[in-house]
């Protein structure tokens, strides 16, 4: 326990750092992911192509490389210099592709007949999506979306390599204070196990509540 109580300041900073990246990154990921997901199922071909290009480009790039782009290339090119903001953008834009794909798969789980029936009674694309498809898709999207969120939480540690304080970077600080790296890292791992299990619990609850009978 000494590792924690003696270095309370660092653990608080690190946890706050992780949660900051998590919450702000999540907002970007969800908003952008929703837009891109919508683009990928839209009737506008060019929008579909742009969405597809974005998803395939970013999803096949390692997150670490995304961080390199934002930490070292973006400051040179666009003169944005706040590292924390850049890190949040990097992970937000990366996770958005996963959000978009999860949404799209969710839409695809709604049986074809549902949309066809809606169209048969004369609904427009927006009506089909808004009244028929999305409400049904939402239920099947929530559990896998929680998985994306859990993976996202774990991915925040990658920011450690880019001068953004979070639970992943605490080892470097504490080994300088003479703490054993093994003990520190086991505590970090434990913190993540607790957070992930908590999120999994929420996921399980939602899944039970919104189980789609089909």
């Amino acid at each position: 326990m000494g590792v924690i109580t003696d270095n309370w300041d660092l653990w608080v900073d690190a946890t706050v750092g992780t949660l900051q990246i998590f919450f702000f990154g999540l907002i970007i990921a969800l908003v952008l992911g929703f837009i891109v997901g919508a683009m990928r199922v839209s009737p506008i071909p060019i929008a579909r192509w742009v969405g597809t290009a974005y998803v395939n480009l970013v999803r096949n790039t390692p997150l670490t490389l995304m961080f390199f782009v934002f930490a070292f290339a973006v400051p040179v090119v666009f003169e944005i210099r706040d590292l924390r903001l850049l890190g949040i953008l990097a992970i937000g834009l990366y996770t958005a592709t996963y959000v978009a794909e999860t949404l799209r798969s969710g839409i695809n789980t709604v049986p074809v007949g549902q949309a066809e029936a809606a169209r048969a009674v004369g609904m427009s694309f927006t009506q089909v999506m808004g009244h028929i498809v999305l409400p049904q898709a939402a239920r099947s999207v929530i559990p896998p979306m929680m998985s994306v969120i859990i993976a996202f939480l774990k991915n925040t540690t990658v920011a450690a390599g880019f001068s953004i304080m979070n639970l992943g970077s605490i080892r470097a600080y504490l080994s300088e204070r003479g703490e054993n790296a093994m003990v520190v890292l086991l505590w970090v791992a434990l913190v993540f196990v607790v957070m992930v299990f908590a999120l999994s619990g929420v996921q399980r609850y939602l899944e039970k509540k919104w189980r789609v009978a089909r």
Binding site: F72, P75, V76, E79, R81, G161, S163, S169
Partner: peptide
């Protein structure tokens, strides 16, 4: 304070103005 794992990255940060 900013920290990177190599000095070269720090020097790059001086050059880009961060």
């Amino acid at each position: 304070i900013q920290e990177f794992d190599t000095y070269s990255q720090c020097v790059a940060k001086i050059e880009d103005g961060s």
